[in-house]
Design a protein around this nucleic acid. Structure first.
Lengths: 241, 241, 241, 241
DNA sequence: TATGAATGAGCGTTCATTCAT
DNA sequence: CATGAATGAACGCTCATTCAT
């Protein structure tokens, strides 16, 4: 990494590149604009990056790596098994807030990633990361099930997907907000909604154990009957998001 | 009369264009590749489209319009107020299945849109559509609240966002699947999860009305106390997804 | 020539083509615009013309031919030797007026030709025509010299060039005028100016026979002395005209 | 510092561009041919010019500017009022020679301009310049009238037009000549012709003051009668030339 | 090492011309 | 014949990357 005489050069370029990528997307970003903003020469750019794409990849990977580290803090916490019941929920919430703080700090870039990176060429990076996130969510759910925090018998795969999507959407909202939202309150509500559902009286009585999905099921999967699903779907926003 | 115009020409071009856009993204798609696949000349392309971007826009707009029509079917149903309680949930599920069938049919393009359209220039189209979907979800929730299907006192804005995100994620999953999933079962589970939450015994006792958000609240908003949220958040997948 | 079913087709096309050529110049004129204005199909265009250039050439050549015919009327008159002295001048003036009437009638196209035809490819046509005109002027001068109307000893080549240029300029002026000028008066003045020069008292006394050009000289070319020219040049407008 | 910029690059490109424009006209000139002749890359062209049209404009404007400067030298001389009578004519001639020397030096480009610039798009530039020239001629005539060099009562507007046209024609001749003509002799003759007219004995007796045009008239405009013009017009070269 | 002038492959678009109907 | 959809060669311009200084 840059044993260059100007140790700031690469940082300046990365900053400028991020700004330009965010504004124009990878394909429409011009190396010249990046170097101009960084106050560097075009040559300097190629001294630090193999290509424009390389710079983009470095930025994205770095950010995703930091985000991943941030996320992993949660799993570490789980291992430490710090608390139980309500206190545990609070601990999980703390972690969520931490992650969303990170998102807020890096909102410009996160926003870009949310849009596919501005080029078809790198969406795979984002996809991969999303997959990784789902994995983390899945583990947390499984772990939570063991501690009685989440209902047994859930289709972990599906639940993790749904949770990921919901948080993803909240993240997109936060990342686009003009002013910083009250993250703790926001995430707290999300948590509560998921824990208790949104079902009203007309539905509540029909409460029943969920069904035996063919997918991995948490807990003893003793999930009784329920042949006809009844649940209570919602309209959704399937495309894009 | 002139050489009778090939009535399939535009359709062929649209098909080929869609395929190439899906594979390469708008910016990296070459007009020549599109026309070659369609078995047409480059000139033919400009006989039907103003520009490459125009073709892309036509494809996206058409698809989004059809999707929107599909979604609106749900609202029409609501107006008809066909059923109550569980039967109503079933009706909503029917509609969800219908929408997801459409997504499955158009999965290649939906996949592209999910990635931001492969170019930074058109993500706004998708954003707008997502916003529109959230609006539909919000209306459905409000309507459902009136019928006792969803709990009163919910922060509609937040809930709609979460629901949208969850369904979005499910949609992305479906759209990428190798084999067609059992949509009814899948969506039924999602519905059930949302209606009942995922909370386990360790959390259930803490059941309590949600709080008075500053946002629109469904029902009489009688939402009592609950100052400290507790809920039970989850890991999230913030970037992209 | 068009044994086409629609005998007006070619005429319509020529008219439209002329209009478009005048507005845009040969290179920027689009065949489609021509046919659209003529209310004909593109195929019809190629039924009557080999190519866009061919249409242009036909138009130019036709016009130049008619103009040439118009000019030749003057030479015919000379052969007829209708008059002498002042009456002869009047006869020449009549002819000039006739030619300029033609120019006025066809001013749009003449204007185009004056600008090089709007393409480098056909300026040769105009050049050739200009040359031809100079030839006619030269013959008229020679003939006039024999009849004592123009001073003997003139460098016919040069004089014809100057006269051509002057009339050319007047023609450009007429062709661009908003309202039709009084051609007879205008041309009469030009004639008078040339016959008598513009020299004032300070110059008049220095009147002297012109010099012995190496070029063809009218009359006995007895052009005595005049070694040092003195004349009285003018500023000139060399480029373009 | 970067590869030291080739100080000749732009000059080389301009030279090559001029040559190609002269040969093909603006519209048919290919950037690639220009760069090939200049021994530069296509990119180099766009390093110095915004577009092909820009290069053309630069060339034309530069040349016209230099030509204008050359022409203005004459007016400066007038202000200095260096001489009188025949000596004045000689001074004017000197200036004409100077201008025509310039034309000869830049004959290729002047030739192009004479043809309308090879495209309809820029003829306005040439038109404007021609107009400017006519203005200079007009001023010189008015000035000359005051000094008794040109006859009073002339229609300055018309005379300036005629003179411009004549010199324009001579310029076109010079610019196309294979070998450099004897400019001083040539221009001297033109001057002489204009000062004394070409009228012969059969016309001379009818000498009379010109008439009072509605246009600006030099001197006291005491121009008596002369209702019937008589003068002695010439055939002309109306189109283009 | 840093610079930025130079390079040239690449691509979108135009439009004269053809030809099936 | 007449039509106008289809064709595809041609060309202007961009911009990532190189490399002489």
């Amino acid at each position: 990494m840059a044993r260059t005489s100007d140790p700031n050069a690469k940082v300046d370029l990365l900053r400028a590149a991020e700004a330009v990528f965010v504004e124009r997307g990878l394909d429409h970003a011009k190396v010249e604009e990046i170097t101009a903003r960084a106050g560097k020469s075009k040559g300097a750019f190629y001294l630090h990056f193999e290509s424009k794409e390389d710079a983009f990849r470095q930025i994205v990977e770095t950010t995703l790596a930091r985000l991943a580290a941030c996320l992993d803090g949660g799993e570490a916490m789980q291992v430490a098994a710090v608390a139980e019941g309500p206190a545990l929920l609070e601990a999980l919430l703390d972690h969520d807030v931490e992650v969303f703080e990170f998102l807020w700090q890096n909102r410009a870039l996160i926003r870009l990633l949310g849009g596919g990176g501005g080029s078809a060429s790198f969406s795979y990076l984002v996809e991969e990361f999303a997959e990784r996130c789902r994995g983390a969510v899945r583990r947390t759910i499984a772990w939570s099930a063991e501690r009685g925090i989440v209902r047994p018998g859930l289709d972990v795969d599906l639940v993790s997907r749904i949770l990921s999507g919901a948080y993803d959407q909240v993240a997109r909202h936060v990342v686009r907000a003009q002013r910083k939202p009250d993250l703790r309150r926001l995430l707290g509500e999300v948590q509560h909604l998921f824990m208790h559902g949104i079902g009203g009286p007309a539905v509540r009585e029909s409460d029943r154990p969920v069904r035996n999905a063919s997918k991995t099921v948490v807990g003893r999967g003793r999930g009784g009957a329920r042949t006809e699903r009844r649940a209570r779907p919602r309209k959704k926003e399937p495309a894009r998001s």
